[in-house]
Amino acid sequence: MSKPLEILLLDDEVIVGKRLKPALGKIGCAVEVFQDSALAIKRMQEKEFDIVVTDIYMDGVDGMQVLDLVRKKSPRTKIIMITGHAMISLAREAMEKGAFDFIAKPFKPDDLKAVIARAAKALGAPIQFDDKKVGG
């Protein structure tokens, strides 16, 4: 394991960041947590992340716009959408715009970990994650 996976987590729900940061930290990810999409975008201008995890419906810039921005700026970054308002049309739109995955809330930390593991593999920097528990 050379360099930790850089992850930006954006969700206006405080608890999501509070819980996922340590959870993802355990599987070797460096997580930066944001509640405000404007601040997150600013940070993304400064730094290229390996993975961006974002909520969709937020005040101001929403997740779909974040997705567009990231796709334009750094095509190699994998974007994972998480939303409480999952709908078939929204999911298809996100995938069409190039999201790596789309997860409906509520989800378990392991669900996200599994997706991140897949993303890491796709990035060519696999991480250690025991996938067995997922789907149980």
Binding site: A91, R92, F102, F107
Partner: peptide, 11 residues
């Protein structure tokens, strides 16, 4: 072939 129809965790 559209990514729109690719499988994802949600689906």
């Amino acid at each position: 072939g559209y990514s729109r129809f690719t499988a994802m965790t949600y689906s």
